[in-house]
Design a binder for these strands. Structure first.
Lengths: 220, 220
DNA sequence: AGCAGATTAGGTATTTATACCTAATTTCAA
DNA sequence: TTGAAATTAGGTATAAATACCTAATCTGCT
């Protein structure tokens, strides 16, 4: 075991995972790293949140599949409560949806449990220095997912010019009357466009319509 | 100039750019490539659309800044009309917003006009073979933009559990009455939550509210 | 134990959206 | 140039949302 340096602050790491074996394994890996120390470990969300009130690590290794609270709920809470704690999501789940969700919830890095030790250590260091860390393979996946957003757009209904205009304005907080004024049209005309839009987008009210339109990329 | 092979189909490329100089330059570059031929070039959107009715290239080099129709409109039309034509956006604009927009509109690759010749040729080949091509620097930008979606979430208003529930259901085509039934609440209660949501999200109607909520990542 | 905020629900009124019609005019492509 | 689709606009009616109140629980936190 590498002796700890005394002339530099160690990276204080905490571990949250419901499998004691995993905690043990991580403990050993980190213990062999000269610039880190494990200051706590927790096996469920409640313990974790309670523990954080007492002491905050620099970097928190967070399993997203723990019993009770899910990882993304925890990430959200911790991100809001302890913004200085850097979170590294540690999981088996390589689904792009989960990755994006966790990043949205405030996690700063995301690596798989199958990751090599040196990469794990590297990720912790990057996070400690204020960076983000995504494994190369995950980066590629997230990127591809973003690029392929187009594929879902394939079944987009055909909207006329006017309909698109009206749709934009509906999504911008305007009533039919206001839209009519802005486009120099009768309110009834705008109402007709509204109804066409509802039909074409398969919605029963403006709220659902806007949601669908955004998902289809019709409006930003 | 490299002689063209006769034993393999050449990649048929068309060019759309409003600068004749650029067209000329591209022409020379492609002419020196053994596996490509330029079958047409256009200097505006109208010409391009008309030309496509006569013959379709395998790969279309598309400047997104042309007079008249904008590149994204053209991309959308061409994508719908000629789905087999692979489009490579060629531009000076390296803004992430433009890149994502063009990709959404059906463009398959995006490179800058400052790109080296060999990379341009490589991109055309990748597109011809059905792939997507983004320059490494642009990939990184798009990725970072996606990851930093979180930063915008920082100013997210704090919604209560109930409010989130109601918000979800509003976006799913339900009226206040239907939401009340589903959650075993009074319609008036749901109406109150609606009003709180409108206020917290700074919207005046459900449509704009849903748009804001999606942009903030509050709903999928 | 006590306080703040969340959740619940009702009264009342006005504004807006939705629904289903008809129909004249314009636009664009076959 | 002819026909289909888009755009325009009106009549009429009902359903729904928005706005501004009050106020009784409930819940979580100190």
């Amino acid at each position: 075991m590498t002796p700890k340096k005394n002339n530099a602050a160690l990276i204080r790491v905490a571990i949250a995972d419901d499998h004691p074996l995993v905690i043990n394994g991580l403990h050993h890996i980190l213990a062999n790293s000269a610039d880190m120390e494990v200051i706590a470990s927790y096996t469920n969300g409640r313990e974790l949140l309670k523990g954080l009130t007492a002491q905050q690590p620099d970097v928190l290794l967070l399993d997203i599949q723990m019993p009770g609270q899910t990882g993304d709920e925890l990430a959200e809470i911790i991100s809001a409560q302890y913004p200085t704690v850097r979170m590294l999501a540690l999981t088996n789940q390589d689904n792009v949806y989960y990755i994006k969700n966790m990043l949205r919830k405030g996690v700063h890095g995301y690596i798989l449990k199958t990751t090599r030790e040196d990469i794990l250590l590297e990720a912790i260091r990057v996070l400690y220095q204020g960076g983000q860390y995504l494994e190369a393979s995950l980066k590629e996946k997230v990127l591809q997912d973003t690029l392929q957003a187009k594929k879902q757009t394939a079944a987009t209904p055909v909207l006329s010019r006017r309909e698109k205009e009206v749709l934009q304005l509906i999504a911008q907080n305007l009533t039919s009357q206001q839209i009519a004024d802005q486009l120099f049209l009768s309110k009834r005309t705008v109402d007709n466009h509204r109804l066409s839009l509802l039909m074409k987008l398969g919605a029963k009210n403006a709220a659902a319509m806007v949601k669908t339109a955004i998902q289809l990329g019709l409006i930003g």
